[in-house]
Design a protein around this nucleic acid. Structure first.
Lengths: 192, 192
DNA sequence: CTTAATCTGAAACAAATGTTTTAAAAATAA
DNA sequence: TTATTTTTAAAACATTTGTTTCAGATTAAG
């Protein structure tokens, strides 16, 4: 029959994701993308689709990678409260060491309000984190590792809620200590 | 000599701000702006300047209005802890009732990293809120209205930090109760 | 009223945008 | 090898972008 597609789609999407991550959806041009992906726009339109479709794939790639990483990281930890602490502290590490702040949060504030497809992906990502953490919180309350509140679902929201503020703070102040101190305080609150 | 400028600059900036607020910096076109402002682009360039300058004026207008409103609202409250609670609860009200989420936060995530001028304005706004709240927290600790921690500056950061997560949550879930429950828990934590 | 200044509106501008076309190159199956 | 199909690269496409030009309208001062 005929020749095969030459480029690695996963790799291409991952490179596109990097550009969207730095520049946002509206700040990224098709030429930014094709250049970073090392691919001609005709090939891009023939395989993946238009700019919007590429963005959808990019944020899906981002959220799915994060989900896998979170599961892999927390699975071996036996104590629920230890797993929660690990989750919080590794978030702090990512926030204070990665070059860009979270693509999901940036996307939420830039386009989630007006783009239904994006909104769904972001919500799915959020629900995943919620469920993962909520399981841990419920077990931690059962085991009396957490005594501060009996309301697991509120507490789960409460913990997750800190992350975007930490991102915001780090963009504005570039001060790791501020984030670490807040995280330490949050963990201390949970432990009492 | 010659005729005067015909349009009200403050009103024009305020109308431009509304557009940037909805669509973001990169999502807004000059035609969006001139249409909303009811003004021709030549007049705009003759008086205020280009798109970027108009954006700068817009976010300054936004942050300055908020500062004035915050001072006016908190001034009459005698008890520091009551003022802190009022600040938190009125933030919840704004987050769960305004059509768009905070322009300062949206701007932080969209362009603050790459635009130094914007970064400065955002930082100034943040510092203002920090100082306002920090004064209250210090007095509340002195008066032993707050006992949970003696570290006023960390506690101030900790409180402010909640707001962007609440915005994010509301964009994703549109669930007022979730935000209110978190706020109630935060206030309870402070009170003990 | 005249003069001089400058503001305004419509149109024009070049450059950049997202997307499509075209023709040639490449790879597989017969 | 040849025929057939698909991929690719470069250029072209129509719009949209941010910005400027220019002639005429409008105003204040002499």
């Amino acid at each position: 029959m005929a020749r095969n597609v030459e480029f690695d789609e996963q790799l291409a999407v991952s490179k596109a994701m990097d550009v969207f991550w730095r520049k946002g959806y509206n700040g990224t041009t098709m030429r930014d993308l094709t250049e970073a992906m090392g691919i001609n726009s005709s090939s891009l339109y023939n395989t993946i689709g238009d700019k919007h479709e590429l963005f959808i794939r990019s944020i899906k790639h981002y959220t799915e990678s994060r989900m896998k990483a979170a599961i892999k990281q927390l699975e071996p930890i036996k104590s629920p409260i230890k797993a929660i602490e690990k989750f919080i502290l590794s978030s702090v590490y990512v926030i204070t060491n990665e070059p860009n702040s979270c693509l999901a949060i940036k996307t939420t504030f830039e386009v989630a309000t007006t783009d239904e497809q994006v909104q769904k992906i972001i919500k799915a990502d959020n629900d995943f984190t919620y469920n993962l953490l909520n399981g841990l919180v419920e077990r931690a309350i059962e085991k009396e590792e957490i005594k501060v509140s009996q309301d697991a679902s509120m507490l789960t929201d409460y913990i997750i809620n800190h992350f975007s503020g930490w991102h915001e703070s780090f963009i504005i102040h570039h001060d790791k200590a501020r984030i670490k101190n807040m995280a330490t305080f949050l963990i201390k609150q949970l432990n009492q």
